[in-house]
């Protein structure tokens, strides 16, 4: 079953055409990594999928619901209610964590499920504790984000996204703000999620990680998808642009 279907996505900022008629689908259980040089449009694609950017044209479906349709060259968004439903299907992990600094770790994770999804607080707290345990942060539930390391912050933000029980989890360069040691912490968590068959889309510069964890890799450059294939085929690609890009990384 397709969780996300995007077709003919176009997006420009002023004169800069960032997404040039892109199609992008994600099946249930897939782990898709999006790689590519800076400015290739991979983050913009993710932000269009999560409604942080408004696309100019194209169609978008979540769980077979039409959320964005295309009418005479313009993207038309569905009702607020439909978008709200669509938003309940996904979670997003930011590069800069974006935790709420005035909330404790526990409240960061539980506020939205209780306040927005109106779920039973006791159940939510119980699930949150289980998530924190899984993230190795059981002793941090009363801490504030400022008291945590970058890696801990990112694990809290992953827990926060998971607490809403999304069907798909997006990561926007989840390790770019972290040093190599802390990066490993996060990659380990994502790998564990992959083993649990969590559907994920990861924008990343960690090529070894993308190779190890992904079921599919998408290579983007200058607003188009250059190549889209399995990790093994991607890292042995004959495409000149792919080779040039991957050549800058030590793959091993």
């Amino acid at each position: 079953m397709k969780i996300l279907e995007m077709k003919h996505i176009k997006k420009r900022f002023g004169d800069n055409e960032v997404l040039k008629d892109i199609g992008f689908d994600v099946d249930e259980g897939e782990v898709v990594s999006i790689i590519g040089p800076s400015g290739s449009g991979k983050s913009t694609l993710l932000r269009c999928a999560t409604f942080l950017e408004t696309m100019d044209d194209g169609t978008l479906r979540y769980m077979d619901r039409n959320i964005v349709t295309s009418h005479s060259g313009h993207a038309v968004y569905a009702s607020k209610q439909e978008i709200k439903t669509a938003m309940s299907y996904f979670g997003l992990v930011f590069q800069n964590f974006n935790l709420f600094p005035h909330f404790s770790v526990m409240k960061n994770i539980t506020d939205a499920p209780i306040r927005i999804q109106k779920r039973d607080p006791d159940t939510v707290y119980e699930e949150a504790r289980a998530l924190l345990k899984k993230m190795g942060l059981s002793d941090k539930e009363d801490a504030y984000p400022s008291q945590l390391s970058g890696g801990q912050k990112q694990r809290v933000s992953i827990a926060r996204a998971l607490a809403l029980k999304p069907k798909i989890l997006f990561f926007d360069e989840p390790t770019s703000a972290l040093d190599p040691e802390l990066t490993l912490e996060i990659l380990k968590v994502i790998k564990e999620l992959a083993q649990e068959k969590m559907t994920m889309v990861i924008v990343t510069h960690e090529m070894n990680f993308a190779h190890d964890v992904s079921t599919r890799i998408v290579f983007m450059d200058q607003g188009v998808i250059v190549e889209e294939t399995t990790p093994d085929l991607m890292f042995h690609s004959q495409n000149e642009r792919t080779k040039a890009f991957l050549g800058k990384y030590h793959i091993g």
Partner: peptide
């Protein structure tokens, strides 16, 4: 953005 994505 974080608040929006979380549904606030």
């Amino acid at each position: 953005e974080a608040a929006q994505v979380l549904g606030y």
